[in-house]
């Protein structure tokens, strides 16, 4: 029992010095992540959280273990928290939070926990309530899934908007550049008798 308690305590320490990162591009891999965070602290381990449920949701999440809880806090609050921190792509920033126990795949069993399970008799008044609870759980899952869909749609919209705006800007720049390059700007300047910009 002591050893499991110790193991759990050690695990909790690990949780405290771990950062949860999400909104990561699917192309981000361990070495990129290490490189990105090594400038702020010592990365001791990287674990990606596999995305089993929503394959539509392609942003990746990862757990990054650093040297100390202080370092983790510093990175979360002062680096990623205060400036848009971008990894392998722009402009969507990554997000950092303190890791939670449930995020770890290899978490040990909480010591001393007892789980009691019960098949409820259909004649028991609890049965009806439990059935309701089941339906509620299903409803909640559906709600969450719907919400996620909405969020993704909005993300897509924003991305498209930004992309369109950038493309438009890009076209403008190219146009101006083109005008300068092929000499039409100078021609026009002399035609209207204004001083053309020297480039």
């Amino acid at each position: 029992m002591d050893s499991t308690a110790e193991e759990y305590a050690a695990f909790m320490e690990r949780v405290k010095r771990t950062i949860y990162l999400d909104n990561l591009s699917p192309q981000v891999n361990e070495s990129i992540l290490r490189k990105a965070l090594d400038q702020y602290g010592t990365v001791k381990g990287v674990q990606f959280i596999p995305n089993y449920t929503e394959s539509k949701f392609t942003a990746r999440c990862a757990l990054v273990e650093v040297e100390s809880p202080q370092q983790a806090q510093m990175i979360i609050e002062e680096v990623i928290g205060s400036y848009p921190f971008m990894i392998l792509g722009m402009p969507r920033p990554v997000r950092a939070r303190p890791a939670e126990v449930e995020m770890f795949d290899d978490r040990p069993v909480k010591p001393g926990r007892k789980i009691k399970i019960r098949w409820v008799d259909p004649n028991d008044p609890d049965f009806q309530i439990a059935q309701k609870l089941k339906r509620l759980a299903q409803k909640h899952a559906a709600e969450a899934s719907f919400m996620l869909k909405q969020q993704l749609a909005e993300e897509e919209k924003l991305a498209k908007q930004q992309s369109d705006a950038l493309k438009a800007n890009n076209e403008k720049y190219t146009l101006i550049e083109g005008v300068m390059a092929d000499g039409s700007a100078r021609l026009l300047a002399s035609y209207y008798n204004v001083k053309a910009l020297e480039d």
Partner: peptide
């Protein structure tokens, strides 16, 4: 969604280079 890609190499911001790494904007 959210990472923009620019096909034009002449874009004023040299995104290809920057995109390969991470940075605080």
């Amino acid at each position: 969604h959210g990472h923009l890609v620019f096909a034009s190499p002449r874009h004023p911001h040299n995104r290809e280079k920057e995109a390969a790494s991470s940075h605080c904007s």
